[in-house]
Structure formats: C-alpha cells, structure tokens
C-alpha cells in the first residue's frame, strides 16, 4: 500500500508529523471560522446549505419512500393496541364534531352576512405547494425538516408550512428543488399569535420541546387551558388566522399543544399568501383603504 509515497515528496518522519499537526490546527481554526461565519448569519452559509439540500434531494426523496412503507408497518403494529379505546374516543369526538359543524355552518352564514354588511375585502387567496418531508435534522439541538420542493415549484423564503390542520413552521432556506422548514418548536422560532376569544396577543416561542411556550402575554390576559391559538398576522410574515394549537398549562406558564404529530411529519403544505414579507405588509397596514 505504500505505492504513493514515491511521489514528489518523501518527507522525513519528524517533518511529516509537523506538517500533519500544522494541518490539524489549521483545520481546527477553519472550523472555528465556520462557526463565526454561521453566527454572523451571512448569505453564503444559507446558499451552501441550499446547494447541499438540492444536491441530495433526489437521494433523500428515494430513501424516504421505502421508509414510508416501513413507517406504515410501525404504525400498523402500534395501532393494533388500543384500537378499541381509540374507536370509542373517535365516536365521542365525532358526535362532538358534528355539533361543532352545525355551529360552524351557522357562524359561516352569519359571517358572510356581516361581511356583506361592512363591505369587507377578503384575504388574497393562498396558493400552495405540497411537499414530501425528505429529511429531518439529525440531532438534539435543531427542529427543522427538509422538504422536497424549492424555488422551481414556487416556494419562497418566509412561507408558512402547514401540516394537517396546524401551522408547522416557516420556510427558512430555499434551494432550487428543496427547502428547509424551521419548525415552530425550534429554539429560534418566534411566531406572533392571538389566544382564544379574548384575542390576547402573545409570541409563540419554540424551545426544542414538542410544545412551544406562550410569551409576552399581558399580565392580566384572560388565557385558560383549552383556548385556541392562531397566528395574529403581526409582522406580516403570516396572514392572521392560521391555527396553531390549543393552550395547555405547564408549570405555572402557558404552552401550546399543536395538532401535529412531530414524529410523523410526512407532507407539508407550503403556502404562499402573497404577503411578500414584513415590509410590504407594513405598507399595506398604512394604507387607509385597508381599514375602516
């Protein structure tokens, strides 16, 4: 195996050791440099990430398909237990939901009538792309996923990612055919929300747990466990009214239980509400025609 040492340099043992140590230290310094570069939040890191995601998207997509089959099997195994229990719960829930449905129809009609009364301009219709989740962030420190749709499918940074009936996250980095979604549970996630019928405003703060925290509530806010939480639309990233979850009380504070099974995120709807980011939304808020 020593057939390569005959090339240009035949270093003496101590010199080679020295070069090795020097390389090692140089690379260590480079790694620290990368950390600082990432911390400075430059576009370069984001571009490199997007490029890596793009390059691996086909591989990950192919790999995530057979695992979907395996996952179905795991689910089937799990479901055999507690089927009877689940059945009973579902029946009860169904009965309750039918009542809610009737109530929703009534409210919808009332809402339409009231909107007609005040001449309310409806929200811009959302266009959306449904993307398969092809990569999870491996590790204990980040909550983000890689989705198999990118700029070529119309995905743009800042779009809302919705799973099932609730907000799952926000598009954070966009490649040509892949996009990274920062989940609302991630440490860096901050979402302006309104809580319950009192419409108290708060910020939904992720802390890497499955249930993000409600922060910056007014001291006398009327918030109770079970209240619905939805985006407030402040900041102009998301439109108001995307459901986020329900309030639960934990350790004297409030957290939000999203209606999402984080372990089984399979598809995300990446929604474009045509808001175009914070700046445009701010301008729109100043538009006298937009408000009564």
């Amino acid at each position: 195996m020593k057939d390569r040492t005959g090339s240009v340099l035949r270093l003496t043992q101590p010199l080679r050791l020295w070069v090795q140590r020097f390389t090692f230290l140089l690379l260590l310094a480079a790694a620290v440099g990368l950390m600082l570069l990432g911390k400075a939040d430059t576009v370069i890191v984001e571009r490199m990430r997007a490029a890596a995601g793009d390059a691996l998207a086909p591989v990950l997509d192919a790999l995530s398909r057979p695992t979907a089959a395996v996952n179905d099997l795991i689910d089937a195994g799990r479901n055999v237990y507690g089927l009877a229990l689940e059945n009973r719960t579902l029946r009860e829930e169904n009965a309750r939901l039918l009542q809610w449905q009737a109530e929703a129809h009534r409210l919808e009609a009332e809402n339409a009538a009231l909107r007609a009364l005040v001449g309310f301009a409806p929200e811009a219709a959302a266009s959306e792309v449904t993307a398969r989740v092809i990569g999870a962030s491996g590790g204990a420190y980040v909550r983000s996923v890689l989705a198999a749709a990118g700029a070529r499918h119309g995905v743009r940074k800042g779009q809302a990612a919705v799973a099932g009936t609730g907000l799952a996250g926000r598009v954070n980095e966009v490649g040509d055919r892949s996009a990274r979604v920062l989940l609302i549970t991630d440490l860096n996630s901050r979402i302006p929300v309104v809580v319950g019928s009192s419409r108290d405003q708060a910020i939904l703060v992720g802390d890497n747990s499955d249930r993000p925290r409600l922060d910056y509530l007014r001291p006398n806010a009327r918030v109770a466990p079970g209240d619905r939480v939805a985006t407030s639309g402040l900041g102009g990233i998301f439109p108001p009214g995307i459901p986020v979850g329900t309030v639960v009380a934990v350790d004297g504070g409030f957290r939000v239980q999203p209606p999402i099974d984080w372990d089984r995120l399979e598809f995300l709807r990446l929604m474009d509400f045509g808001l175009g980011g914070p700046v445009r939304a701010h301008d729109a808020a100043g538009d006298p025609g937009g408000r009564p």
């Binding site: 990368l34 990432g38 691996l56 491996g138 420190y141």
Partner: peptide
C-alpha cells in the same frame, strides 16, 4: 453541518 440545519461548523470542529 450543511445537511443537519444546525449551527454551522460545530460538527467539523
């Protein structure tokens, strides 16, 4: 680091 989505450079270091 690129694929994981976490802070950059930590794994390399």
């Amino acid at each position: 680091d690129l694929l994981g989505g976490g802070p950059f450079g930590v794994n390399a270091f």
